[in-house]
Computed example of a mutant assay.
Amino acid sequence: MSADIVSPTHRSKIMSMIRGKNTQPEMAVRSVCHEMGLRYRLHRKDLIGKPDLVFPKHRLCIFVHGCFWHRHTDCKYAYTPKSRQDFWLPKLAKNVERDKNAQEALKNDGWRVAIIWECQTKNRELLRTEIQKIFKLNI
């Protein structure tokens, strides 16, 4: 196992800057949805998992997941850290389990759930196509 190349204090500062809301991928999804005339609510605390975008009219929740943090299968951004795997592997596995439980609970409450991955937000036209598929729109 290789040692971390930065001090614990610096690593803590780096990690504290990682945001959970209003991330660049989330903002891209919000922008495209707004362009398409889709109106939504953000981070509804009354719904399990606090979905990133909620479309009450469509009974739809969209989660915008970071490929690394939520373990996007076969994605180059979902790499596994080489150091401190005893820390990272359980942490990342808990994220996946929490996601699964939240999605299941929302579906049981009558919501449709969609995931948009960080890597899907890199190309605006592909993102638009993905959102159209989610809503089954021909805009």
Rank of each mutant, 00 (worst) to 15 (best):
M1G: 15
I5L: 13
P8W: 01
H10E: 11
H10Y: 12
R11I: 10
S12H: 10
M15G: 14
S16T: 03
S16N: 03
M17F: 03
N22M: 11
N22Y: 12
T23G: 06
T23H: 09
Q24M: 10
E26H: 02
M27S: 12
M27R: 09
V29G: 02
R30T: 09
S31L: 12
C33D: 09
E35I: 14
G37Q: 06
G37Y: 08
L42R: 07
R44G: 03
D46R: 02
L47P: 05
K50T: 14
D52M: 01
L53E: 01
F55M: 04
P56C: 04
P56M: 02
P56L: 07
K57S: 15
R59Y: 05
L60W: 10
C61Y: 01
C61I: 10
C61A: 15
F63E: 00
F63I: 00
V64A: 04
V64Q: 00
H65M: 04
H65P: 01
F68R: 04
W69F: 13
W69T: 04
H70F: 08
H72T: 09
T73I: 02
T73F: 13
T73C: 09
T73M: 07
D74Q: 09
Y77W: 11
Y77F: 13
Y79V: 05
Y79Q: 06
Y79D: 03
T80A: 09
T80Y: 04
K82R: 13
R84N: 15
Q85N: 06
F87M: 02
W88G: 13
L89V: 14
K94V: 06
N95P: 13
V96D: 00
E97I: 10
R98L: 07
D99C: 10
N101A: 14
Q103A: 02
Q103L: 01
A105R: 07
A105V: 06
K107G: 05
K107D: 00
N108S: 10
G110N: 08
W111L: 05
V113K: 01
I115P: 00
I115S: 02
I116H: 00
W117C: 06
C119S: 11
Q120T: 01
R124L: 13
E125Q: 14
E125H: 10
L126Y: 09
L126T: 13
L127S: 01
T129N: 11
T129A: 15
K133D: 15
K136A: 13
N138K: 15
N138Q: 14
I139L: 14
